[in-house]
């Protein structure tokens, strides 16, 4: 494949990765921002989302769009409820102590993963996309005979992949509106800035924490529902999103939402492009190297506030 079309294809693949990553990492970032909790089980909420999406979608017959839409509503909701309950049962009991929450969420990771293995089973399960048309993409070149449009071999994407990008932007916009334009967002931001003062002003901090933990898990689940018609639901699928989310959140600045989006685009696109031109392993190596450099030279991340 020529360089130009190759780069376009790589960018499209990167954009899909970035879209899913932005949603997942945003969940991790909100949880850290508001609660100061490093949620190691975040990838498992992603997995729960995918698994529930499969369960919901496969219980509907007929048009796959119905099952998919149902999954898009039900899966994040259930993942959120599970997370909120876990917050009440576990994180509140350890008083959100940073060290103990890490250990507790590691435990939660294994509990969720093994429960999925025991109930959902070890197989990968597909979800039929609501629509999936292959779209051949044209390429423009200025050759000897002037400006020509060609249809390079293999240069294509699918309508569903484009939908994933659009849907992720829509969800993130909705989240931005929630955080900056609503009372719920105000309460969350108040809790984030100073939870004690917020409590003094009558903010039910504990309940806010439960909601935020649920919201974080719900965002991961939305990402998973969107990705599951492209990939498949599998009980071990939470590992990669967790790792990449951590990378994104550290680069973007822990707790900074715009930083998270920028870092997700950076990592997602570079992952796509480096994987296509070199190798996916190199993409991971570089991403990890960037994390190390950020931690050394700019420990608060791209847009994070200095602590």
């Amino acid at each position: 494949m020529d360089f130009g079309p190759h780069l376009l294809l790589a960018s499209l693949e990167g954009a899909v990765t970035a879209a899913i990553l932005a949603l997942t990492a945003m969940g991790l970032s909100i949880v850290f921002g508001v609660m100061r909790v490093v949620n190691v089980a975040h990838g498992e909420f992603f997995m729960i989302g995918a698994v529930i999406a499969w369960a919901v979608a496969s219980s509907f017959t007929g048009n796959p769009a119905i099952g998919f839409i149902a999954a898009l509503i039900v899966a994040p909701l259930i993942a959120g409820i599970i997370a909120a309950v876990a917050d009440k049962l576990i994180l509140q009991r350890v008083n959100y102590d940073p060290d103990r929450t890490i250990v507790a969420t590691i435990g939660l990771l294994y509990i969720i993963q093994q429960t999925a293995l025991m109930t959902f089973g070890p197989d990968a399960r597909p979800v039929t996309p609501p629509f999936n048309t292959r779209l051949s993409l044209p390429w423009f070149e200025i050759g000897e005979s002037g400006f020509v449009m060609t249809w390079p071999w293999g240069l294509s994407t699918t309508s569903y992949k484009l939908f994933v990008i659009v849907a992720a932007i829509a969800v993130l916009t909705g989240l931005w509106v929630l955080m900056t334009r609503t009372k719920a967002g105000l309460i969350m931001r108040a809790t984030q800035q100073d939870s004690e003062t917020a409590q003094a002003f009558g903010v039910p901090v504990k309940r806010v924490y439960s909601y935020v933990f649920g919201l974080g898990a719900g965002l991961a689940a939305v990402g998973a529902v969107l990705v599951v018609p492209i990939q498949q639901a599998h009980y071990l699928m939470g590992h990669d999103p967790l790792l990449l989310s951590f990378i994104v959140v550290i680069i973007g600045g822990l707790g900074s939402l715009p930083g998270t989006v920028i870092a997700a685009i950076l990592i997602g696109m570079s992952d796509g492009i480096i994987s296509v031109f070199f190798s996916p392993t190199l993409a991971k190596i570089i991403a990890t190297l960037v994390v190390a450099l950020v931690l050394v030279f700019r420990p608060h991340g791209l847009l994070g506030k200095k602590v």
């Binding site: 494949m1 190759h6 294809l9 790589a10 693949e13 990765t17 071999w153 293999g154 492209i230 990939q231 699928m237 990669d240 796509g272 994987s275 296509v276 996916p280 392993t281």
Partner: peptide, 17 residues
């Protein structure tokens, strides 16, 4: 392709015409 890979399109442009 690593056996744990989940996304494959990015490998295919290396298929020669």
């Amino acid at each position: 392709i690593p056996p744990t890979e989940t996304s494959f399109t990015r490998y295919f442009p290396n298929i020669p015409r």
